[in-house]
Design a protein around this nucleic acid. Structure first.
Lengths: 290, 290
DNA sequence: AACAATTACGGAATCCGTAAAAATT
DNA sequence: AATTTTTACGGATTCCGTAATTGTT
């Protein structure tokens, strides 16, 4: 068995090239690292270094050992994360998403949700499969099912994009609209909108987008300007938009009819956690506007 | 970072169920294990055990931690093995096989091989891909190419099965033979013949096979009996068979013409080790009877 | 002179075993 | 009575830092 602190020293040496820098980056003294690498060699019964009086360099075996060590350390850290996240998720049930719509819908009934449910602030999940397997989230909303065998992906419904145009714009004079009809316009858009971002960028020719990190900043800009903004059949639950804007917003909401503007929504969770996420899923299905 | 000795204690507790038995199997005292599990809980910041005055049981988190711990320990051990095997293979170049033919062919020119080449005694490689990736062998002969991306599988030639029949048997009166014509006969066969074993068992109806572990025992039996035995175009290099038998063996060698009796031979090695195995491959190709 | 590695020595932290206690079956 | 877990205490091991040595650039 190889001790972790020795593996760290080896990995750092592979990066830095000298024992002195290794010691410096690990906040220990050189003799510590010297002894450590000697012990690692003796534990393995293998020569890891070519020794010249003033220079240490890794042998071929040493290089292999360094990459193996790196893998072991990351595996160890990943295990710690999984265990700690699992323990946390025993108490608070973390809900994430790759797109904001479903989170907004759930937030609208926050009072009716179990007290241990913790909704993510923004749609910032990069790799949903990894996030579930690492017990980072117990439930993640995505726009595509996940392939991993331990994961169940349940179709929740469809999110449909709409655009809110000033009522005096000529395009506003209709019940629905297409991406093509929005060409060359400028929009204010939230930053964390997941896959929607690529969709609007790829489908509206010549458009410009002003991305806003904060939702409050976005509502401010929309309130005091004529920039069109996007919404969906799900974001209608957004309390910020509905309360602060709806009262005096002179825009009209036009659903976008393109296929690309219709997005399937899936609820993904570890199959082993089905029982724990079931009540939340039931709530989500109940409020889904389909 | 989780210390290995704590992980071992957790894994053994998951197996045995009590700290006392855990201590016994690990050859330490109970207080050691008690403190160890307390430290592991404190390191993780997580409760791993349900504590009743006289009974300790794993929580859900604890069970997860135990399986994670087991994985980390096996990964650690596997890394050690890979490193040590790699180091050994820097000096001696280990050659294995899933079938004996190619090893026999190479053995016939043992004197001309580099001194650091170590040929396996018997064809006992179970999982050639694993053996290569673990640096257990540097070169393995198989009857099928290996799929792993880091591995190169080079077609070496074809091994062709033959049977040696007493010259007075009526089937011996021909140049070649088929499996069907060997029906209901009894054969003496070596134990470690890899895939050949399934082939003769599946293709010769009603045949009986007397498997011998030792090659010497097999030659003894064949010498003092009339049992037919198998050979191939490659096993002709076998010094035991050729010297001890050929002089007074009254059998005739009949190649078997069935497709199933023709076996492709591949030389498999880590692509990164190509340069080191190249000279051996060259020798093998030179003597191959194709 | 500056830098890198190693060794020697003493202190500090950690880990372990013995002994004893508390509680259960 | 026998088991199991836990705490307390002392010893032993291990690990680390300071100081000093060697050799190279």
């Amino acid at each position: 068995m190889l001790d972790n602190y020795l593996l760290e020293e080896l990995v750092t040496f592979a990066q830095t090239g000298t024992l002195a820098k290794t010691a410096a980056t690990l906040n220990v003294t050189q003799p510590t690292v010297t002894r450590g690498m000697q012990k690692l060699e003796s534990d393995l019964g293998v020569q890891l270094f070519d020794r010249q009086p003033n220079r240490l360099s890794l042998t071929a075996t040493g290089k292999l050992a360094a990459t193996e060590a790196r893998a072991l350390l990351t595996a160890n850290q990943a295990a710690v994360d999984r265990i700690q996240n699992f323990d946390r998720n025993q108490r608070v049930l973390q809900v994430g998403a790759t797109l904001p719509g479903p989170l907004i819908a759930l937030q609208s009934l926050a009072t009716q949700l179990p007290a241990n449910v913790q909704l993510a602030e923004t749609a910032d999940v990069i790799d949903p499969t990894q996030a579930l397997l690492a017990n980072d989230d117990a439930l993640i909303f995505t726009n595509h099912p996940l392939a991993a065998p331990a994961i169940t992906s349940e179709r929740l419904g469809t999110e449909r994009l709409a655009v809110n145009l000033n009522q005096f714009m000529y395009q506003a004079n209709q019940a629905t609209i297409t991406f093509a009809e929005l060409a060359d316009l400028s929009f204010v858009v939230l930053n964390d909108i997941g896959p929607w971002r690529a969709i609007i960028q790829d489908n509206i020719p010549g458009a410009k987008f002003f991305y806003q990190e904060e939702r409050d900043a976005l509502t401010e800009i929309t309130k005091f300007s004529d920039f069109p903004y996007f919404s969906t059949n799900v974001s209608q639950f957004d309390p910020v938009l509905t309360t602060q804007l709806a009262t005096d917003d002179k825009r009209v909401c036009l659903p976008i009819t393109d296929n690309a503007a219709q997005m399937p929504i899936y609820a993904c969770y570890l199959t082993a956690e089905k029982a724990r996420v079931a009540p939340i899923l039931k709530q989500a299905q109940a409020v889904w506007p389909d």
